[in-house]
């Protein structure tokens, strides 16, 4: 019998190639649509991913990539279009401007990407004299701080310190001496800053005796004393103090009450206003009364 193996096939037979079983299967697999798209898309994608991950897994490569990225970022941020070269404070007086500049230690020139505008705004608004502030990078690389300052309406003597208050009773700064802000009324006493509106109403009401008015003192955190010169005091009730002050002013205008030797006008009880005289006045009054009784 002739050998059955392929090697022994007769040489004269025409060349007749047939695919091997695995080649045939491979070709059929390559004709499967899903497999083809996998080879076309999936394998290159996987290859790229593997290469990228293996490159990135080395520390020096990672550092290099990060450094490169940071450098690129810096190059863009340091472009002259983004640089800020000056600080401009608007809406504040000179003292406040100096104060604001001291609070914002920015070394110019600086990239606008490095500026934390929100933080700067908070810093500026934390100042007593500033009611609100807007911080923005304006045109031509100027950092613009637009400040709305607090308007002081009164001076509050708190212990040995003179504080400025705005109409909401918020601190708006300090003054060294009373003489610095003679235009503002003076209030004192604990809790005075919480009732600043009432105090201002009283000051407006006390215009007729304005030349003699020293200030208002909050007593016991519930009522006001009006302090005049010559150590005179008007004790006002806790409720409706303006009406009580009006009565005193009317009395003063009719009888010149406050020009007399009166130490205290006590209006705390509305039904029973009381006067306390000075010692000399009281003695004199008593002497006059004896004399009249003797006659």
């Amino acid at each position: 019998m002739r050998p059955l193996t392929a090697m022994a096939r007769h040489r004269a037979l025409p060349r007749d190639p047939a695919p091997s079983k695995w080649k045939y299967r491979y070709q059929r697999m390559m004709l499967t649509p899903g497999f083809r798209s996998l080879m076309r898309v999936g394998v290159p994608l996987a290859l790229i991913t593997i290469i990228a991950v293996s490159w990135y897994s080395h520390d020096e490569n990672r550092a290099l990539a990060i450094a490169k990225w940071e450098g690129m970022k810096r190059d863009v941020q340091q472009r002259p279009e983004f640089m800020v070269g000056a600080l401009d404070v608007t809406g504040a007086d000179d003292a406040l401007t100096r104060n604001v500049l001291a609070q914002l230690p920015v070394a110019f020139p600086v990239s606008s990407f490095d500026l934390d505008l929100e933080q700067m705004r908070k810093t500026v608004e934390a100042l007593d004299a500033v009611r609100s502030a807007r911080v923005r990078v304006g045109t031509a690389g100027v950092l613009n701080v637009d400040i709305t300052p607090r308007t002081s309406v009164a001076v509050w003597r708190d212990g040995g310190v003179l504080r400025l208050l705005d109409e909401e009773g918020t601190f708006a700064g300090f003054v060294e001496t009373r003489a610095d802000r003679l235009d503002l009324p003076l209030i004192a006493g604990q809790g005075a800053q919480a009732h600043i509106a009432e105090a201002l109403a009283l000051f407006r009401d006390a215009k007729p005796i304005g030349s003699r008015l020293r200030g208002l003192v909050r007593m016991g955190e519930r009522r006001w004393d009006v302090v005049l010169d010559r150590d005179q005091r008007i004790l006002l009730p806790g409720e409706n103090p303006v009406a009580a002050l009006d009565r005193v002013i009317v009395l003063h205008q009719a009888r010149d009450m406050l020009d007399r030797d009166v130490a205290v006008v006590d209006m705390r009880n509305g039904n029973r206003p009381t006067l306390r005289m000075n010692k000399e006045a009281a003695d004199a009054f008593r002497r006059v009364s004896y004399n009249e009784a003797d006659e």
Partner: peptide, 18 residues
């Protein structure tokens, strides 16, 4: 089987479909 494989493979190749 080899002959069938040859024919089928060539026809598939021409049709470009499995």
């Amino acid at each position: 089987e080899r002959a069938i494989r040859t024919a089928v493979q060539a026809a598939q190749k021409m049709a470009n479909v499995r």
